[in-house]
Amino acid sequence: MERNLICLGIEGTAEKLGAGIVSSSGKILANVVKYHSLVGGIHPREAAQHHAENMKATLEQALQNASIGLGDIDIVAFSQGPGLGPCLRVAAVSARTISLAKKIPIIGVNHCIAHIEIGRLLTKAKDPLTLYVSGGNTQVTAYTEGRYRVFGETLDIAIGNCIDQFAREMKLGSPGGAIVEKLARSGSYFELPYVVKGMDLSFSGLLTAAIEAAKKQKIEDVCYSLQETAFSMLVEVTERALAHAEKKEVMLAGGVAVNRRLQEMIALMAREHNAKFLVPPKNVLGDNGAMIAWLGILMYDSGVRHKIEDTMVKQRFRTDEVEVKWR
């Protein structure tokens, strides 16, 4: 590397707006995240409005935290997908504006791969099988021959969405995941639908059954059983993928990865297969700009160049579409 490049990463796939600044030596200089407060789920247009209104302040805060000016930025990266169209477009427009105004390269990055790469940077994982779990995504991926291959994924809704929707239906308050986790601690188990299809999974039937069960059962028991069922499904497909892909490390990523019970379960499974268990620090588990910036650097350094016309957002951007040139 000739010199230490500085990349600004803009994250805006869903309800969070993030601006991160990372240097090519892997140092995170700033990582500011602003939330669109959720009432009754994400409304894409309202979330996009929130991002547009807060973009300037978020970017300024990130620059201030990094003690640099916009002129010190060498590359601008943004989350190109997958995600909600209106939100993605706000991030893309901001990145294009900065790129054109400051005449610096722009890189559109895949949000799911950004989660994996920031995890690898901070946990020092070499070649992990990754379980990426969040409000919008649920995937089991591993690297083979030039791409992150998807071994398992949800066939319908994401795990975070399942838990959040349950919490909303039960009027448990926000953040749903943390409240369900807390209530689950004093619950006991009853049977709920367990749906695994090879290495894929489905949560929509489980969600409906949990909401239905809550009419009769104690809320603590429903929370516990929902978590145990959903997480066992996740661990099972991760275990199957681990055996299939023959990897030696298992890494968690995404907002749902903060759940202690899920961490414990994955760690137990990994130990049984003599695999190392890794989980990145909490501040990069949820959606953030630093991960976008870091992947921007990796891509730029490996020779990737995007023109403005390559920066159209991709709402259904697949993890295995991206040619990985930096590994």
Binding site: K197, M199, D200, D320
Partner: peptide
């Protein structure tokens, strides 16, 4: 249909 999907995906992930 899901049976076929599972097979198709195993081709995609391992025999792309």
């Amino acid at each position: 249909g899901v049976d076929l999907l599972v097979f198709k995906k195993s081709l995609r992930s391992t025999h792309y």
